[in-house]
């Protein structure tokens, strides 16, 4: 737990004077599953979007503080955002396949990186579709629009799309909330498999999911980090009254 991949220092986000995140200080361990737990609307998603600077596309947000990725400050730099973003794959609440074929969805990031060789593209697409257990289901219709897939398949496709650019970190924002139980299990299994090679950061409000997946749990409430630690510490011996209450009322 001594190897830190992301360091967050004094991160503040406000919207029109209302604080969304208040003085957040965190260290995210490398090659572990970190779960950010907390009720809806407490700033979890905002925190995630600060990490890959997607926060930029939302108007009217003031962001201050520092975020270090591999020792490099990313919050206050203006250029080369694309390289930083490629270090992180994003999985959002609902799957949003790009308006193109299944194949092109996975190949999109690779083409952006400049990979043009057809054979290599095909190899890599197959590799990542296999990695998310989707290849067998779609190998005969790679050219059909991605929107024809079921929601669960779409989410796995989105995971493959993120993995294809070879990120170090996977950011997942309540990745199973729109899925049926079977697809959810499938996604969770992917995470367990992936955590050997990736740092995984999952935002969720489902406590059982947090318990199943987490190596490290961070509890956020109303924009503040209340408590963090191993699952055992947080779930079995919570220190802070807010955590205790949330665990008692929670799901």
């Amino acid at each position: 737990m001594n190897d830190t991949i992301i360091g967050i220092h004094h991160l503040n986000v406000t919207h029109a004077g209302t604080p969304i995140l208040k003085d957040v200080n965190l260290e995210i361990p490398r090659n572990r599953v970190t779960v950010i737990l907390g009720p809806s609307g407490c700033g979890k998603t905002t925190l995630l979007k600060c990490l890959n600077r997607l926060i930029d596309i939302y108007n009217g947000l003031d962001v201050s503080g520092q975020i270090y990725l591999d020792g490099e400050e990313i919050l206050n730099r203006r250029n080369d955002l694309t390289r930083i973003r490629q270090k992180m794959g994003l999985l959002s609440q609902r799957p949003y396949p790009l308006p193109m074929s299944i194949f092109d969805n996975v190949a999109y990031g690779l083409k952006i990186q400049g990979l043009r060789n057809r054979d290599e593209l095909a190899d890599r697409v197959e590799f990542y579709l296999r990695q998310v257990n989707l290849w067998e289901e779609v190998k005969d219709r790679l050219k059909s629009p991605a929107t024809r897939l079921s929601i669960g398949q779409q989410q796995r496709l989105c995971l493959a799309r993120g993995l294809a650019v070879e990120p170090e970190i996977i950011l997942a924002d309540e990745p199973t909330s729109a899925l049926d139980p079977l697809s959810s299990t499938c996604i969770e299994e992917q995470f367990m498999k992936l955590k050997r090679d990736y740092t995984i950061l999952i935002v969720t409000h489902i406590m059982r999911q947090a318990r199943r997946l987490a190596d490290h749990v961070i509890f956020i409430y109303l924009g503040e980090v209340i408590e963090q630690g191993t699952p055992t510490q947080i779930f079995d011996h919570p220190q802070h009254p807010t955590t205790k209450q949330y665990l008692r009322v929670g799901h």
Partner: peptide, 22 residues
Amino acid sequence: PIELKEASLSVGASYWETIKWV
């Protein structure tokens, strides 16, 4: 949906690439 834009940006596309392709 803004999530499409997020998806494209998060794999490292620039704004213009996102506009053009997505």
